[in-house]
Design a binder for these strands. Structure first.
Lengths: 244, 244
DNA sequence: GCCACGAGTGTACTACGTACACCAGCTTTA
DNA sequence: TAAAGCTGGTGTACGTAGTACACTCGTGGC
């Protein structure tokens, strides 16, 4: 019977099971709750058992990124480079939003796994297939930067009002909120103005914040339009010109 | 005599001394070496002494960011918005490059200190002073994103060749390097192409990498040009249009 | 039947952030 | 001038990390 119980519980571990469990745990409990010990516990196993499947925590994180990359759609066929890139970035963004930990983890990675390199490679391929010069492609990839992954550093991740007070709006009396606002108006008039515009509906700084998706696409399209212009003009960097 | 010795060693601690010591330590030993214990040791003091000057490690990091912000030039007077923004971003970038830890720490921050808010506020002020609508300013700030701080997520932080192997070029025989290259060429032809172009001088992927400063300014100027175009056209978001 | 091997275990070590009680010496005040 | 209080530094201790290393035990091949 104990053997039966053990047999049922012990679906044998493997790298994939470890990685997906890590992804689920990070999704549900946050990346800061993802420790080797906690993950092992979640898998009904002793911490050191994990090390038979991943070399260490760094490799675990790399593996999680690989899982993420696997969720990004492949490049669309039969469209121009611009919409191909756009679609793919937005697909990456969707994957990223499903996994709140991903941004932080991606930012922290220093080595690139084959899966990541593969993603980058096919990404570059979209520009090349669109007739971009290698030179322009290179700079364009840099300009995209982390937007390739569907994210940007969010400067207003909370509304500016919350950020100023360093606290959540809940549990703050209207009076203190009022006081905070006056304080803000004095010290950061410009932030206040912009924040008010972003929260136009009720005139409060401490409301739903701004439309991240809109902001993201705004910048993305601005960049894409810039790329297109350079491309049409046959732009080349000085460095590349010297080569010819 | 012991009193004398103590008196010489005990330049009294204060918040500023703690913060600058933290900055120096992070500069020299890397951010991962910055622990409360190590920092205390560096200051010739017991770990818990630090907690009389900073509430906890988070606040220490916030304070370090404040030090950084203090190193950024104020906005230039008597120039157009475009060069004012450009100069300021490049000044931020210079400060950032002096402190290799800064990017990671900035990215990890969730609360904004008054100094940071002050920086953002005066940053926004440059656009408003340039005649930008509040609406456009808002989106433009989002588009700049972390570029406001003078950095972007570096995708090719090492040369692609190193990234592929996950190791430093030193200590790798030319033969394995050659093999790596062939491997790369097969699996990531596009990356290879771009990387080769970036390392045009000797045709090796594993050389000095690309000109980060150039790449940064490329994207920055592309964005600034886009902003300018929108500004001239009196661009407004749909959301803002509804307001009128 | 033996033996090698690989997955999972147990114990232990080092390093971290920090709570809490304490103390020395200075400043304020009665 | 003595008592009281404040300020900054100390010592000890706890809980949580990551992971090295030696182990056990079930399985499959000879």
């Amino acid at each position: 019977m104990t053997q039966q119980a053990e047999a049922t519980r012990r679906i044998p571990l493997n790298r994939e099971r470890v990685l997906t469990a890590a992804v689920v745990l990070a999704d549900e409990a946050g990346i800061e709750a993802l420790s080797m010990r906690r993950l092992a516990q979640e898998l009904g196993v002793v911490p050191m058992a994990l090390y038979k499947h991943v070399a260490n925590k760094e490799e675990l994180l790399d593996g999680m990124v690989d899982v993420l990359v696997g969720e990004i759609d492949p490049p669309a066929r039969d469209t121009g480079w611009q919409s191909a890139v756009r679609l793919r970035v937005l697909s990456a963004r969707k994957a990223l939003l499903r996994h709140p930990w991903a941004r932080q983890v991606l930012e922290s990675r220093t080595t690139r796994t084959p899966a990541v390199l593969g993603y980058m490679d096919s990404f570059i391929g979209m520009f090349l297939a669109g007739g971009f010069s290698v030179d322009l492609t290179h700079h364009v990839m840099h300009a995209l930067g982390s937007r390739m992954w569907g994210f940007t550093q969010e400067l207003f991740d909370d509304s500016a009002g919350n950020a100023a007070a360093g606290m959540a709006p809940s549990g703050v009396t209207p009076e203190t909120q009022e006081a905070m606002l006056r304080e803000m108006a004095q010290r950061y008039p410009n932030i206040l103005q912009v924040a008010m515009a972003a929260n136009h509906d009720d005139g409060s700084v401490v409301s739903q914040g701004c439309d991240d998706q809109f902001e993201f696409e705004f910048a993305l399209d601005l960049l894409l339009a810039g790329f297109e212009r350079f491309h049409r003009q046959g732009w080349t960097s000085e460095r590349a010109k010297l080569e010819r």
